[in-house]
Design a protein around this nucleic acid. Structure first.
Lengths: 208, 208
DNA sequence: CAAGAAATTGACGTAGTGTCACGGCCAGCT
DNA sequence: AGCTGGCCGTGACACTACGTCAATTTCTTG
């Protein structure tokens, strides 16, 4: 009994430390990125914001890019299932579009820190990095659009372009929303939804 | 006479070299960025692709970011006047939207190398950097939209959001267009135009 | 042509990178 | 509990990039 418990607890010890180290590094990286920007940050900056040694960092990540990717991917993996469910449940274009935008903009406004675009150190450039999991989310949207088209929910338009348009509007309007004092996800979603509901009808059909 | 010519030619010598060095650096940077990616590139890589010394680089640019910005800004400054003219000439929503997208997508397809998104060295992330001149182009579009609204050309919608939506669709569809074998700027423009022509009518009015 | 101005050069001090031999600590067995 | 093998954290190390600056070359001007 006690032996078993002990063994489990003991086995857990190593794993636990590993998880904790990973989280420590990620937390430090978030802090450093938000304080001095992704471009200016170095692996050493991240380590220094941590009680760990430099070598330890490389047991977990290959570079600061990989750390960033882990953070961004976590965010993507958190929202993708919700978006997917919203789209799967949709029984009309209106539900599909409106549900997607509402879910997305609400998520963005609740996680504004993670979506604030990283800036380079000195200049005024805007930086956007789409990690593989984010891109996979785009592909998921395209698949769902193709399914919706096959089911006759959507007219037979170019699913790839439509996906791109939705993604572009979602990200770019998020940016503007976040820069406003009175962030209003509902109004943002209403805008984007109206645009697409009106627009989809007018889109060129592939068949014709 | 000859003195004057000599003087002019001589005075020109410095300026000429300066311009040429700048171009040499920019050309080397384009090459390096496209070969190993912006993220992996170092200032030294750029210098090595050049007959110049490392110190010379810093007479022209502060960092690789600044080089990138110069390249990107050149592109932005090349297309902005064309877009602005297209919008100023427009006497209908249709002309405004359609002219903008056609001009943009044609420009993109003629300059595909400059628009191909830079990738980080190893991972599959997509990177987009909007430099100040690019952002200024966004603001220009917003101003033109506001003017068009004031003139009754457009309905009284949120110009900031509409600008964001147009920008998002333009960039994201460009990306898809460039990834297709049979790049078709006209079809891309037709898609985006239809979306907005249909959508703008449905957009929520600010007054109401 | 002389002398000053301007720009180039590359070595230098500083700092970040990724690696690896070492050693401590946990897991599993007796 | 005690022993032992191996996992993993550690930080010094060799290497490379950074940005600067005194020396030097090249252009300009009177």
């Amino acid at each position: 009994m006690e032996a078993v418990i002990k063994r489990d607890a003991a086995r857990g010890r190593r794993e636990q430390t590993k998880l904790q180290n990973r989280e420590t590094i990620l937390a430090a990286a978030r802090k450093v990125f938000s304080e001095i920007g992704f471009g200016a940050a170095t692996v050493r900056d991240i380590i220094r914001a941590t009680p760990l040694a430099s070598g330890t960092f490389y047991n977990y990540f290959k570079s600061k890019e990989e750390v960033y990717q882990a953070i961004r991917d976590d965010v993507a993996l958190a929202i993708r299932p919700r978006l997917r469910e919203e789209r799967t449940r949709a029984d009309s274009v209106e539900a599909f579009i409106s549900g997607s935008f509402r879910t997305f903009f609400e998520f963005v406004s609740r996680n504004r820190e993670d979506f604030r675009h990283l800036r380079h150190a000195a200049d005024a450039s805007r930086l956007r990095i789409d990690t593989p999991e984010v891109i996979a989310g785009f592909e998921e949207l395209r698949e769902d659009l193709e399914t919706a088209i096959a089911n006759g929910l959507f007219p037979d338009v170019d699913a790839d372009f439509l996906m791109a348009a939705i993604v572009g509007v979602a990200f770019e309007i998020s940016e503007r929303m976040l820069s406003r004092e009175d962030m209003d996800p509902a109004a943002s979603a209403a805008f984007a939804t109206a645009l697409f509901l009106g627009g989809v009808r007018a889109l060129p059909k592939k068949g014709g």
